[in-house]
Design a protein around this nucleic acid. Structure first.
Lengths: 391, 391
DNA sequence: GCAACCTATTAAACTGTTTAACTAACCCGC
DNA sequence: GCGGGTTAGTTAAACAGTTTAATAGGTTGC
């Protein structure tokens, strides 16, 4: 019997066979024999295999301290003396011990993982717009010791309530919601703030959600001022999903109010939806110019649609900017590599991603103030715009 | 003594003040008071708060079975009778219980998480090439019940041996390595197969690694056959990192051997590095045409460089394809939205990502055969190519 | 009537960490 | 020389599951 209890694998870290320990455990004779301990090397002197799995227990045993002490050393707890700290730390380094973060998270409050939630578009990952946001997020998350997992808000994902499940099952500490719109009703599940979520580059008036956005109004303002200065009056507007995306509506509102302020009555035939894609932008450009041949400028709600418009115009022998000026929105890297290069609004997407990430981590750590940040944007003038042709 | 085991603080979660429980626990006065159990509702009758955290213990208690039984029900263990299975399952559904995956992974062998490792390029996430691969990876991973985390192979990441640490600390079960080249020496750490890694869309002869690639040779073959058929002989070649990337070298080899087979001696002045970027492609096109005005076609190693070349040519009044034909490689979505539309080689990147993901999961689950898959590619003829101009 | 066998279920060990509670040893003042 | 305060640790519970030997209970065989 004594052998069985003499060195219970987990509790008394076999500190030299500890007389007291074995005596106590003799008090009760176990009816069930415990599972035999996992083949630990019973050579107490030598170290375990270098690369192999070392647990805190192993470190504690070799350092002749308790696991609590090792834990405290790792967490720089001041209750551990310098001498012990150094001794244990050296052993940790020698053994190449790395704490198991599953155990850490299980025991602690945080997983140190965030989810980036993308919309259910086939090419969401291959999109430069999301890519810039994600770049910012990943860089900042990495710097703050966080990992990032990727999720797509597919219908089945939401239906299965996986957006909640990733919290309940302890996959993540928070969500960064990219590219979401008014139809993503699941967002209301986060309004109460039980699970942290930050909306990235959009915002909602119907749900009280944290968000970090670009200043779309200011960007649109600059575009309209600029085009009006150049003498454009009949300005086409290629928007997308304006009914569903608050920032899109903002741009549209600025477009109309600025026209009116310049004494121009905005006409419905100058506006067409471009679905955020190159194809849509090309088609919208065609539709608008077919409706009104006198349109001298096209303002697109994003660069992709602007590029599509550019493409349509050049294929149809319409000179840009000679006959029609084109302005985009986003300043994707790519906008400088079309012919002609694209005048557009620079959005600080990398910074928005990074800031949203940081704010989310703060919220996950108990900060209670609502987040609502707006980052400045500015117009980048390139070759696709010029003075309105005199007619 | 029996009391000690009879009602350990965790198993009897204060079942309504329970006379039996409290009486027993009086028998022995514990010297150490345990950490107070996390505020569980002491209403034994009703269910816990719907959304709140329910543990397996709670389910077991309410179902009046042991936690082992609940575990077995969850894992469809046939040792549980149909009746019990159904009864427990219904309770699980009613309570909305979801197993904590930290605990599952801690006690089990797998984390059900994969890492996607990207190169340390500033715009890696905003790149359509990587985006397509990642799309395929995420879709397949999701279908197989896996989560995907994002990592970047920055110098400090490798120096800190984090590529090993994410295994040792149990963040992931495997790595998908994207965009890596011969200079990524850390890859040799995976040659022994201790930690699963699959190289995506590249391969190495110096290290014995799993990989899934596109058939670059076949694609290059089709391009050269096509250009030669059109009568091109002086064909410029914009490559990148050919010294470091096996697939790039393959394309270069096919370029040279095909020219030779057609009786043309490949000249060094027709070849220039384009650094995989639009800028690089534009510059390379300029350099090549400055060196030899008689070049009638440019073959670029990827679409981005081809687009850069296109851009350079149109800005300088060189008609494409009238004077110079241009061919790309990748078939990014974008290639159809430049002027003229780009003839290119379609790479099944989405499929490569998905397949690599699946193979990696198999490897992580103990499959021992080396992975080495090659997916077919094909030429997409668009507008940027035509018959060589007669001179 | 009892050993043998089978089946459904349970107890307990196990995963690896954090942390609250406890304690031995030392110092201080009175 | 004894209560109070630090200091530097130790102990064991807790986190939430999985795994497996043991067992209770029932049936069958002889």
């Amino acid at each position: 019997m004594s052998t069985e209890t003499d060195s219970p694998p987990q509790s008394s870290p076999s500190t030299g066979g500890s007389a007291s320990g074995s005596m106590k455990s003799l008090k009760k004779s176990r009816r069930r024999t415990p599972r035999p301990p996992k083949g630990e090397p019973d050579i107490a002197t030598g170290l375990a295999t270098p690369g192999s799995k070392v647990s805190m227990r192993e470190v504690a045993r070799l350092a002749k301290v308790s696991v609590a002490t090792v834990s405290m050393v790792l967490n720089d707890n001041p209750r551990i003396s310098r001498a012990t700290h150094m001794r244990v730390q050296r052993l940790i380094d020698r053994l190449g011990y790395r704490p198991n973060r599953l155990a850490q998270s299980l025991s602690g409050r945080y997983t140190q993982v965030l989810a980036v939630m993308l919309p259910a578009l086939r090419h969401a990952f291959a999109d430069a717009y999301f890519g810039e946001l994600i770049s910012g997020i990943c860089d900042r998350a990495g710097k703050m010791g966080y990992k990032v997992i990727l999720e797509q808000a597919k219908p089945e994902f939401i239906k299965e309530r996986e957006h909640i499940e990733i919290f309940e099952r302890r996959y993540v500490d928070g969500i960064l919601a990219l590219g979401c719109n008014d139809r993503h009703a699941f967002l209301k599940d986060f309004a109460e703030g039980k699970y942290p979520l930050v909306v990235v580059d959009n915002y909602f008036s119907q749900w009280n959600l944290d968000h970090v956005v670009c200043d779309y109004r200011s960007g649109a303002d600059q575009v309209m001022n600029y085009l009006l200065q150049l003498g454009h009056r009949k300005i086409g507007f290629i928007n997308a999903a304006a009914s569903e995306i608050r920032t899109s509506r903002d741009v549209g509102e600025v477009y109309r109010s600025k026209l009116e302020a310049a004494g121009v009555t905005p006409e419905a035939r100058w506006v067409e939806d471009g679905k955020f894609t190159e194809e849509g932008g090309a088609k919208a450009a065609q539709v608008i110019l077919d409706r009104d041949k006198d349109v001298t400028a096209l303002f697109a709600g994003n660069d992709k649609m602007a590029v599509g418009a550019l493409h349509y115009l050049s294929r149809n022998g319409i000179d840009v900017p000679g006959q029609v000026s084109v302005v985009g929105f986003d300043d994707l890297r790519h906008a400088a590599f079309v012919t002609p290069t694209l005048t557009t609004v620079h959005l600080p997407l990398y910074e928005v991603g990074a800031l949203a990430c940081e704010r989310l981590i703060e919220r996950a750590h108990g900060k209670t103030e609502r987040v609502g940040e707006r980052l400045p944007t500015h117009l980048i003038v390139r070759e696709s715009t010029t003075l309105a042709a005199a007619r």
